[in-house]
Protein backbone atom coordinates (compact mmCIF):
# COMPACT_ATOMS: atom_id res chain seq x y z
CA UNK A 1 0.00 0.00 0.00
CA UNK A 2 1.18 3.49 -0.77
CA UNK A 3 1.60 5.55 2.35
CA UNK A 4 -0.14 8.60 0.91
CA UNK A 5 -3.80 8.47 1.77
CA UNK A 6 -6.18 8.84 -1.12
CA UNK A 7 -9.88 8.69 -0.29
CA UNK A 8 -10.90 8.01 -3.89
CA UNK A 9 -8.61 5.02 -4.15
CA UNK A 10 -9.78 3.64 -0.83
CA UNK A 11 -13.42 4.03 -1.72
CA UNK A 12 -12.85 2.21 -4.99
CA UNK A 13 -11.65 -0.92 -3.20
CA UNK A 14 -14.22 -3.70 -3.18
CA UNK A 15 -16.42 -3.07 -0.14
CA UNK A 16 -16.08 -5.53 2.73
CA UNK A 17 -18.98 -4.00 4.62
CA UNK A 18 -21.98 -3.74 2.37
CA UNK A 19 -25.15 -1.68 2.38
CA UNK A 20 -28.56 -3.06 3.19
CA UNK A 21 -27.91 -3.35 6.89
CA UNK A 22 -30.46 -2.02 9.36
CA UNK A 23 -28.50 0.61 11.28
CA UNK A 24 -30.40 3.90 11.68
CA UNK A 25 -29.84 6.55 9.04
CA UNK A 26 -26.83 8.65 10.03
CA UNK A 27 -25.49 6.07 12.49
CA UNK A 28 -21.79 6.43 13.17
CA UNK A 29 -21.26 2.71 13.68
CA UNK A 30 -21.57 1.67 10.02
CA UNK A 31 -19.22 4.44 8.96
CA UNK A 32 -16.65 3.37 11.52
CA UNK A 33 -16.86 -0.29 10.47
CA UNK A 34 -16.53 0.40 6.76
CA UNK A 35 -13.72 2.85 7.48
CA UNK A 36 -11.76 0.29 9.49
CA UNK A 37 -12.32 -2.62 7.12
CA UNK A 38 -11.36 -0.51 4.13
CA UNK A 39 -7.84 -0.33 5.58
CA UNK A 40 -7.35 -4.04 4.88
CA UNK A 41 -5.20 -4.79 1.87
CA UNK A 42 -7.25 -6.32 -0.92
CA UNK A 43 -5.41 -9.63 -0.90
CA UNK A 44 -5.81 -10.23 2.84
CA UNK A 45 -8.70 -12.05 4.39
CA UNK A 46 -10.20 -11.10 7.71
CA UNK A 47 -12.39 -12.63 10.36
CA UNK A 48 -14.65 -9.99 11.87
CA UNK A 49 -15.78 -10.50 15.47
CA UNK A 50 -18.66 -8.57 16.94
CA UNK A 51 -20.10 -8.08 20.42
CA UNK A 52 -23.87 -7.99 20.82
CA UNK A 53 -24.84 -4.38 20.08
CA UNK A 54 -26.73 -2.17 17.66
CA UNK A 55 -24.08 -3.06 15.13
CA UNK A 56 -24.51 -6.79 15.54
CA UNK A 57 -28.30 -6.97 15.43
CA UNK A 58 -28.37 -4.62 12.44
CA UNK A 59 -25.68 -6.23 10.31
CA UNK A 60 -26.20 -9.96 10.77
CA UNK A 61 -29.88 -10.60 10.97
CA UNK A 62 -30.48 -14.14 9.81
CA UNK A 63 -30.18 -14.98 6.93
CA UNK A 64 -28.42 -11.80 5.78
CA UNK A 65 -24.92 -10.66 6.58
CA UNK A 66 -23.41 -7.29 5.65
CA UNK A 67 -19.87 -8.67 5.78
CA UNK A 68 -17.95 -10.08 2.84
CA UNK A 69 -15.40 -11.63 5.22
CA UNK A 70 -16.05 -14.37 7.72
CA UNK A 71 -17.81 -13.09 10.81
CA UNK A 72 -18.63 -14.35 14.28
CA UNK A 73 -20.86 -13.01 17.00
CA UNK A 74 -20.99 -14.99 20.23
CA UNK A 75 -22.22 -12.82 23.11
CA UNK A 76 -22.18 -9.29 24.54
CA UNK A 77 -19.33 -9.68 27.00
CA UNK A 78 -16.84 -11.94 25.25
CA UNK A 79 -15.90 -10.51 21.87
CA UNK A 80 -12.20 -10.13 22.71
CA UNK A 81 -12.03 -13.71 24.00
CA UNK A 82 -13.89 -14.80 20.89
CA UNK A 83 -11.32 -13.08 18.72
CA UNK A 84 -8.57 -14.80 20.79
CA UNK A 85 -10.16 -18.13 19.97
CA UNK A 86 -10.28 -17.52 16.24
CA UNK A 87 -6.70 -16.28 16.28
CA UNK A 88 -5.57 -19.30 18.30
CA UNK A 89 -7.29 -21.61 15.82
CA UNK A 90 -5.54 -19.82 12.97
CA UNK A 91 -2.11 -20.46 14.50
CA UNK A 92 -2.93 -24.07 15.31
CA UNK A 93 -4.31 -24.80 11.85
CA UNK A 94 -1.54 -22.92 10.12
CA UNK A 95 1.04 -24.96 12.02
CA UNK A 96 -0.71 -28.10 10.87
CA UNK A 97 -0.88 -26.98 7.25
CA UNK A 98 -4.65 -26.61 7.21
CA UNK A 99 -4.90 -22.86 6.55
CA UNK A 100 -3.07 -20.74 4.01
CA UNK A 101 -2.56 -17.05 3.46
CA UNK A 102 -2.79 -14.05 5.72
CA UNK A 103 -5.88 -13.63 7.85
CA UNK A 104 -6.43 -10.58 10.04
CA UNK A 105 -8.64 -10.55 13.13
CA UNK A 106 -10.75 -7.49 13.86
CA UNK A 107 -13.26 -7.14 16.66
CA UNK A 108 -15.97 -4.50 16.97
CA UNK A 109 -17.64 -3.81 20.29
CA UNK A 110 -19.82 -0.95 21.46
CA UNK A 111 -18.83 1.05 24.51
CA UNK A 112 -21.04 -1.11 26.72
CA UNK A 113 -19.43 -4.25 25.34
CA UNK A 114 -15.97 -2.74 25.79
CA UNK A 115 -15.79 -0.31 28.72
CA UNK A 116 -18.20 -2.35 30.83
CA UNK A 117 -19.32 -5.94 30.41
CA UNK A 118 -16.55 -7.05 28.01
CA UNK A 119 -13.76 -5.23 29.81
CA UNK A 120 -12.30 -8.30 31.51
CA UNK A 121 -12.34 -10.28 28.30
CA UNK A 122 -10.63 -7.39 26.50
CA UNK A 123 -7.99 -6.91 29.18
CA UNK A 124 -7.24 -10.64 29.13
CA UNK A 125 -6.89 -10.80 25.38
CA UNK A 126 -4.61 -7.75 25.28
CA UNK A 127 -2.43 -9.13 28.07
CA UNK A 128 -2.07 -12.49 26.33
CA UNK A 129 -0.88 -10.69 23.24
CA UNK A 130 -3.07 -12.13 20.50
CA UNK A 131 -2.40 -10.71 17.06
CA UNK A 132 -5.69 -8.84 16.75
CA UNK A 133 -7.31 -5.44 16.60
CA UNK A 134 -10.05 -4.47 18.99
CA UNK A 135 -12.17 -1.56 17.81
CA UNK A 136 -14.53 0.10 20.23
CA UNK A 137 -17.14 2.14 18.40
CA UNK A 138 -18.00 4.46 21.19
CA UNK A 139 -21.49 5.95 21.12
CA UNK A 140 -21.41 6.60 24.85
CA UNK A 141 -24.37 4.50 25.98
CA UNK A 142 -26.15 1.17 25.59
CA UNK A 143 -28.03 2.15 22.47
CA UNK A 144 -29.34 -1.23 21.42
CA UNK A 145 -31.39 -1.61 24.58
CA UNK A 146 -32.66 1.96 24.46
CA UNK A 147 -29.99 4.45 25.55
CA UNK A 148 -28.91 3.41 29.04
CA UNK A 149 -25.78 4.87 30.62
CA UNK A 150 -22.44 3.11 30.40
CA UNK A 151 -19.13 3.98 32.04
CA UNK A 152 -18.37 5.74 28.77
CA UNK A 153 -21.34 8.09 29.04
CA UNK A 154 -20.06 11.62 29.75
CA UNK A 155 -20.88 13.62 32.86
CA UNK A 156 -24.36 15.21 32.84
CA UNK A 157 -25.57 13.30 29.78
CA UNK A 158 -29.21 12.31 29.91
CA UNK A 159 -29.87 8.63 29.29
CA UNK A 160 -32.84 6.46 30.17
CA UNK A 161 -31.09 5.34 33.36
CA UNK A 162 -29.71 8.77 34.17
CA UNK A 163 -32.78 10.88 33.52
CA UNK A 164 -33.09 14.55 34.27
CA UNK A 165 -35.70 15.51 36.86
CA UNK A 166 -36.25 17.78 39.79
CA UNK A 167 -33.31 16.09 41.49
CA UNK A 168 -31.57 14.15 38.71
CA UNK A 169 -29.03 16.00 36.59
CA UNK A 170 -28.08 13.33 34.11
CA UNK A 171 -25.08 11.07 34.64
CA UNK A 172 -23.26 11.80 37.88
CA UNK A 173 -19.84 10.46 36.96
CA UNK A 174 -17.21 11.38 34.41
CA UNK A 175 -16.48 9.21 31.39
CA UNK A 176 -14.03 6.38 32.00
CA UNK A 177 -10.79 6.89 30.10
CA UNK A 178 -10.55 3.52 28.44
CA UNK A 179 -7.89 4.41 25.91
CA UNK A 180 -5.48 5.25 28.73
CA UNK A 181 -6.32 1.99 30.43
CA UNK A 182 -5.52 0.11 27.25
CA UNK A 183 -2.27 2.03 26.89
CA UNK A 184 -1.40 0.81 30.38
CA UNK A 185 -1.54 -2.74 28.99
CA UNK A 186 1.67 -1.90 27.13
CA UNK A 187 0.26 -3.02 23.82
CA UNK A 188 2.16 -2.06 20.67
CA UNK A 189 -0.50 0.31 19.36
CA UNK A 190 -3.47 2.14 20.83
CA UNK A 191 -5.26 5.13 19.39
CA UNK A 192 -8.26 7.35 19.63
CA UNK A 193 -9.92 8.15 16.32
CA UNK A 194 -13.07 9.73 14.91
CA UNK A 195 -14.90 9.66 11.58
CA UNK A 196 -14.01 13.15 10.46
CA UNK A 197 -13.25 14.84 7.15
CA UNK A 198 -11.95 12.49 4.50
CA UNK A 199 -11.48 9.60 6.98
CA UNK A 200 -7.73 9.87 6.78
CA UNK A 201 -7.43 9.77 10.57
CA UNK A 202 -9.49 6.60 10.91
CA UNK A 203 -7.86 4.98 7.90
CA UNK A 204 -4.29 5.61 8.93
CA UNK A 205 -4.87 4.39 12.46
CA UNK A 206 -6.80 1.35 11.27
CA UNK A 207 -4.02 0.42 8.89
CA UNK A 208 -1.44 0.69 11.64
CA UNK A 209 -3.56 -1.30 14.05
CA UNK A 210 -4.27 -4.05 11.54
CA UNK A 211 -0.70 -4.34 10.29
CA UNK A 212 1.13 -3.97 13.60
CA UNK A 213 1.85 -7.39 15.05
CA UNK A 214 0.26 -8.06 18.42
CA UNK A 215 -2.81 -6.73 20.19
CA UNK A 216 -3.89 -3.27 19.06
CA UNK A 217 -6.73 -1.10 20.23
CA UNK A 218 -8.75 1.62 18.54
CA UNK A 219 -11.31 3.74 20.33
CA UNK A 220 -13.45 5.44 17.72
CA UNK A 221 -16.07 8.04 18.56
CA UNK A 222 -19.30 6.95 16.93
CA UNK A 223 -22.07 9.55 17.08
CA UNK A 224 -25.58 8.19 17.49
CA UNK A 225 -28.30 10.59 16.34
CA UNK A 226 -30.94 8.71 18.28
CA UNK A 227 -29.16 8.46 21.61
CA UNK A 228 -27.47 11.84 21.44
CA UNK A 229 -30.61 13.47 20.13
CA UNK A 230 -29.42 15.54 17.18
CA UNK A 231 -30.54 15.63 13.52
CA UNK A 232 -29.21 12.66 11.52
CA UNK A 233 -27.48 14.76 8.87
CA UNK A 234 -25.19 16.33 11.46
CA UNK A 235 -22.95 13.30 11.99
CA UNK A 236 -19.78 14.81 10.51
CA UNK A 237 -20.38 18.12 12.23
CA UNK A 238 -20.84 16.54 15.66
CA UNK A 239 -17.73 14.38 15.27
CA UNK A 240 -15.78 17.44 14.16
CA UNK A 241 -16.97 19.44 17.18
CA UNK A 242 -15.96 16.63 19.56
CA UNK A 243 -12.46 16.86 18.17
CA UNK A 244 -12.21 20.66 17.95
CA UNK A 245 -13.44 21.15 21.52
CA UNK A 246 -10.92 18.54 22.71
CA UNK A 247 -13.76 16.52 24.20
CA UNK A 248 -12.42 13.65 22.06
CA UNK A 249 -8.75 14.29 21.33
CA UNK A 250 -7.16 12.35 18.50
CA UNK A 251 -3.90 10.68 19.47
CA UNK A 252 -2.00 7.45 19.24
CA UNK A 253 0.45 5.58 21.44
CA UNK A 254 2.92 3.52 19.49
CA UNK A 255 5.30 1.33 21.49
CA UNK A 256 4.77 3.60 24.49
CA UNK A 257 5.32 6.85 22.61
CA UNK A 258 2.39 9.26 22.81
CA UNK A 259 1.60 11.43 19.81
CA UNK A 260 -1.20 13.89 19.12
CA UNK A 261 -2.46 13.27 15.62
CA UNK A 262 -4.59 16.39 15.45
CA UNK A 263 -4.31 19.74 17.20
CA UNK A 264 -7.29 22.05 16.69
CA UNK A 265 -6.31 25.33 15.12
CA UNK A 266 -8.63 26.96 17.60
CA UNK A 267 -9.78 25.00 20.64
CA UNK A 268 -13.53 25.59 20.73
CA UNK A 269 -15.53 25.87 23.96
CA UNK A 270 -17.12 22.59 25.09
CA UNK A 271 -20.53 24.24 24.84
CA UNK A 272 -20.25 24.11 21.06
CA UNK A 273 -20.20 20.33 21.20
CA UNK A 274 -22.89 20.08 23.86
CA UNK A 275 -25.43 22.56 22.49
CA UNK A 276 -26.61 20.68 19.39
CA UNK A 277 -27.35 17.52 21.38
CA UNK A 278 -30.58 16.92 23.23
CA UNK A 279 -28.86 14.74 25.81
CA UNK A 280 -27.16 17.86 27.21
CA UNK A 281 -30.12 20.25 26.86
CA UNK A 282 -30.64 20.70 30.61
CA UNK A 283 -27.08 22.00 30.95
CA UNK A 284 -28.18 25.14 29.15
CA UNK A 285 -31.06 25.92 31.45
CA UNK A 286 -30.86 28.89 33.72
CA UNK A 287 -29.11 28.08 36.98
CA UNK A 288 -27.15 25.21 35.45
CA UNK A 289 -24.21 27.28 34.27
CA UNK A 290 -22.07 25.42 36.79
CA UNK A 291 -22.54 22.26 34.75
CA UNK A 292 -21.02 23.86 31.69
CA UNK A 293 -18.18 25.21 33.82
CA UNK A 294 -17.47 21.79 35.28
CA UNK A 295 -17.60 20.13 31.88
CA UNK A 296 -15.18 22.73 30.49
CA UNK A 297 -12.80 22.40 33.44
CA UNK A 298 -12.73 18.63 33.05
CA UNK A 299 -11.93 18.77 29.34
CA UNK A 300 -9.23 21.41 29.92
CA UNK A 301 -7.57 19.35 32.59
CA UNK A 302 -7.57 16.18 30.46
CA UNK A 303 -6.29 18.11 27.46
CA UNK A 304 -3.43 19.69 29.42
CA UNK A 305 -2.38 16.27 30.64
CA UNK A 306 -2.45 14.91 27.12
CA UNK A 307 -0.34 17.82 25.87
CA UNK A 308 2.22 17.03 28.56
CA UNK A 309 2.27 13.35 27.69
CA UNK A 310 2.62 13.93 23.98
CA UNK A 311 5.14 16.71 24.45
CA UNK A 312 3.08 18.85 22.11
Amino acid sequence: MSTVYNLKREVEKPARFTGGHRLCAGCGAGIVVSGVLRALDNEDRAVVVNATSCLEVSTFMYPYTAYMDSYIHSAFENSAATCSGVEAAYHALKRRGKVEGTVKFITFGGDGGTYDIGFQSLSGAMERGHDMVYVCYDNEAYMNTGIQRSSSTPHFARTTTTPVGSVGQGKKQNKKDLTEILVAHNIPYAAQAAPIGNFKDLHTKSYKAIYTEGPCFLNVLSPCPRGWDYPTEKLAEIARLAVDTCVWPLYEVEEGVWRLTYIPKKKLPVEDFLRPQGRFRHMFEKGNEWMLEEAQAYVDQKWERLLERTGA
Binding site: I72, N78, A81, T82, G85, V86, Y90, K98, Q120, S121
Partner: peptide, 18 residues
Protein backbone atom coordinates in the same frame (compact mmCIF):
# COMPACT_ATOMS: atom_id res chain seq x y z
CA UNK B 1 -7.47 -17.26 29.59
CA UNK B 2 -8.49 -14.96 32.44
CA UNK B 3 -11.74 -16.83 33.28
CA UNK B 4 -13.82 -19.87 32.43
CA UNK B 5 -16.10 -17.49 30.60
CA UNK B 6 -13.26 -16.73 28.23
CA UNK B 7 -12.20 -20.36 28.17
CA UNK B 8 -15.53 -21.37 26.70
CA UNK B 9 -15.58 -18.28 24.48
CA UNK B 10 -12.20 -19.26 23.07
CA UNK B 11 -13.40 -22.82 22.50
CA UNK B 12 -16.56 -21.69 20.71
CA UNK B 13 -14.63 -19.33 18.46
CA UNK B 14 -11.82 -21.77 17.76
CA UNK B 15 -14.26 -24.53 16.88
CA UNK B 16 -16.18 -22.13 14.61
CA UNK B 17 -12.86 -21.23 12.99
CA UNK B 18 -12.34 -24.88 12.06
Amino acid sequence: VESEHSSMSVCIAAQAAG
